[in-house]
Nucleic acid binder design. Structure first.
Length: 218
DNA sequence: ACCCAGGGTCATA
DNA sequence: TATGACCATGGG
């Protein structure tokens, strides 16, 4: 058992299954992935509720709106002007590509490249969509993941997104897409659950000794 | 009052 | 390629 599997097992035994992504539809997953960029999930839920109450959780409905009409609804999720444009840019692309039915037949590498070509969709958002909306076996790297694995000295602090993603995917290659799904969700859960103390917490993802993992870092 | 959240783009060097 | 500025609300 390697470090990557070991951390997964500890997280899973600590928190159990997370059943991600929290949403009622695949389209809502994709919208949520954009809205949650550098934003607390609670605020994203408020924006999603606004969209739901206006019946706007479909490509067709969103395409009837302008950024100025959308922005007020996205207000609670922050960066509302930016996100209104990003959401519309994504939806226009999504619609042009034939939505889910057409996109699902593309190979993962091709679909990933297409997602990244949309303005406002970066590596993490693309991988959220690939893993949680299209059930592709890609590993999502977020700030928590980098923090935990660099502070445990499993990777260099300067390790970039793609490089770290390949570390996970190479190491966990025999595991399932369900495991990738669960793993990222558990990392986020751990971040929410433990890393609340300001300015720094005493768990493994920041410094000192983690009460959960019992591993000395830094 | 300060820090940060389930990031990404753009300008600058 | 690598930083820095910028986007902005709401909770701890």
């Amino acid at each position: 058992m390697n470090h990557y599997e070991s951390i997964y097992n500890r997280l899973f035994s600590e928190y159990g299954p997370q059943s991600w992504w929290p949403a009622d539809s695949t389209f809502e997953i994709m919208v949520g992935a954009i809205l949650t960029q550098n934003t607390a999930w609670l605020n994203v839920e408020r924006a999603l509720d606004n969209l739901k109450s206006e019946q706007l959780l479909s490509a067709e409905a969103l395409l009837q709106k302008t950024p100025d009409q959308l922005a007020p609804l996205l207000k609670p999720s922050g960066y509302f002007n930016v996100k209104a444009q990003r959401l519309l840019a994504f939806v226009q692309w999504y619609s042009e590509e034939g939505e889910y039915a057409t996109l699902k037949s593309l190979k993962t590498v091709v679909l990933r490249k297409k997602l990244l070509s949309v303005k406002g969709i970066g590596p993490e958002t693309a991988d959220d969509i690939l893993l949680y909306a299209f059930n592709r076996k890609v590993f999502v790297i977020d700030a928590y993941t980098k923090r935990i694995f660099s502070r445990l000295d499993y990777v260099e602090k300067t390790t970039g997104y793609e490089e770290l993603r390949e570390c996970f995917e190479r190491t966990l290659t025999l595991h399932s897409v369900e495991m990738f799904n669960e793993y990222h969700a558990l990392i986020v859960k751990h971040g929410k659950d433990v890393c609340k103390t300001r300015p720094v917490c005493s768990c493994c993802c920041l410094n000192a000794i983690c009460p959960k993992f019992g591993v000395k870092v830094d």
